[in-house]
Computed example of a mutant assay.
Amino acid sequence: MKNYREHAKDYLFTIGEAAKAMGITRRIILNYEEKGLISPDVKSEVDGRNGHRYYTMDTLSRIGAIRLLQNLGLSLDEIIKYYYNESDLNVILGRLEELQAELNHQIERIRARTESQSNNQILTLSFNAQKVYAETCHSHSLSDRFQDLRRILYEGLHAYQSNPFEPNYFVEYPLDDPDCITYCVPVAKDSVGEKIRALPKLKGLGIYHHGSYEGFAEPRERLVRYAREADIPLAGTCRHLYLEGPALHLDSARYVTLIFLPLAE
């Protein structure tokens, strides 16, 4: 009688069938092979050359587990160390907990945006510490600011990997000098370079502004008045986080921008 592993090879999938069953591309499967995460269970030869690849359900299960770990945020290199016992499981656990915290942070921000769309309420929000590619310019008109922003976005995203957990670019400026603008592009946490800045964790007051970019002054001043009346100390800077803009909406009335005033430490 055949054991489990002997039976496994009775039911084989071609690479195309495996890709379809798992909802991925053939290229992804071949990439897993190149990384040493999987290998074909049967490999035929045609005229002395590699021919067809076949995979068992065991291998498809392994592919599913790899995809799950990727979806949780682990890189292929981290997954390789996990499977080959080259990494302390506590390190992997810590990485997953870090990703969970970042995901919870994003959920809170999206929930706040949804709940504030109708009443434009003042919210207490926080931002995790992050790395950004940044440059400070004196921009005196909206046209100048768009030009500076496009250039700095282009330079930052060509030089560094973006941060998938902080995909939105933003600007910061002193409340007493709104033309002195620092343009910030979130990048991977391991980024280093002359224009890379490490920003600390922040807590502050925010309003989700729905409308064109010309309308930022009113919600900003509303936040300043609220903080003054409530005797809340501000850091003296303002941040505009561009959440939904021209890339998503033709109508500027549908733009969504977070106006954020950090609190003094």
Rank of each mutant, 00 (worst) to 15 (best):
residue 5 R to Q: 15
residue 7 H to G: 07
residue 8 A to T: 05
residue 24 I to W: 04
residue 26 R to S: 08
residue 27 R to P: 05
residue 28 I to W: 03
residue 29 I to F: 01
residue 34 E to A: 12
residue 34 E to T: 15
residue 34 E to R: 15
residue 35 K to L: 02
residue 36 G to M: 11
residue 37 L to H: 03
residue 38 I to A: 01
residue 42 V to W: 01
residue 43 K to G: 04
residue 43 K to F: 07
residue 48 G to N: 13
residue 51 G to M: 13
residue 52 H to E: 14
residue 55 Y to D: 01
residue 57 M to G: 14
residue 58 D to C: 03
residue 59 T to Q: 05
residue 61 S to M: 14
residue 64 G to N: 10
residue 66 I to T: 03
residue 66 I to A: 00
residue 69 L to A: 11
residue 70 Q to E: 14
residue 75 S to C: 07
residue 82 Y to D: 03
residue 94 G to A: 05
residue 95 R to N: 14
residue 95 R to Y: 04
residue 98 E to A: 13
residue 98 E to S: 09
residue 101 A to L: 09
residue 104 N to R: 15
residue 105 H to S: 04
residue 107 I to S: 08
residue 113 R to M: 13
residue 115 E to V: 11
residue 118 S to E: 12
residue 120 N to V: 09
residue 120 N to Y: 08
residue 122 I to M: 06
residue 126 S to A: 11
residue 127 F to E: 10
residue 134 A to F: 07
residue 136 T to P: 03
residue 137 C to N: 07
residue 140 H to N: 13
residue 145 R to W: 09
residue 150 R to K: 15
residue 151 R to F: 03
residue 157 L to S: 06
residue 161 Q to L: 10
residue 168 N to G: 06
residue 169 Y to M: 13
residue 171 V to I: 14
residue 173 Y to T: 06
residue 174 P to S: 05
residue 177 D to R: 10
residue 179 D to S: 14
residue 181 I to N: 00
residue 183 Y to L: 04
residue 185 V to N: 01
residue 187 V to Q: 03
residue 190 D to T: 07
residue 191 S to G: 06
residue 197 R to T: 06
residue 200 P to Q: 12
residue 202 L to W: 08
residue 205 L to S: 06
residue 206 G to M: 05
residue 217 A to G: 06
residue 221 E to R: 10
residue 223 L to K: 00
residue 227 A to V: 08
residue 229 E to Q: 15
residue 233 P to F: 13
residue 234 L to H: 09
residue 241 L to W: 02
residue 248 L to I: 12
residue 249 H to Y: 12
residue 249 H to N: 07
residue 252 S to Q: 14
residue 256 V to D: 02
residue 259 I to K: 00
residue 260 F to T: 02
residue 261 L to A: 02
residue 265 E to V: 10
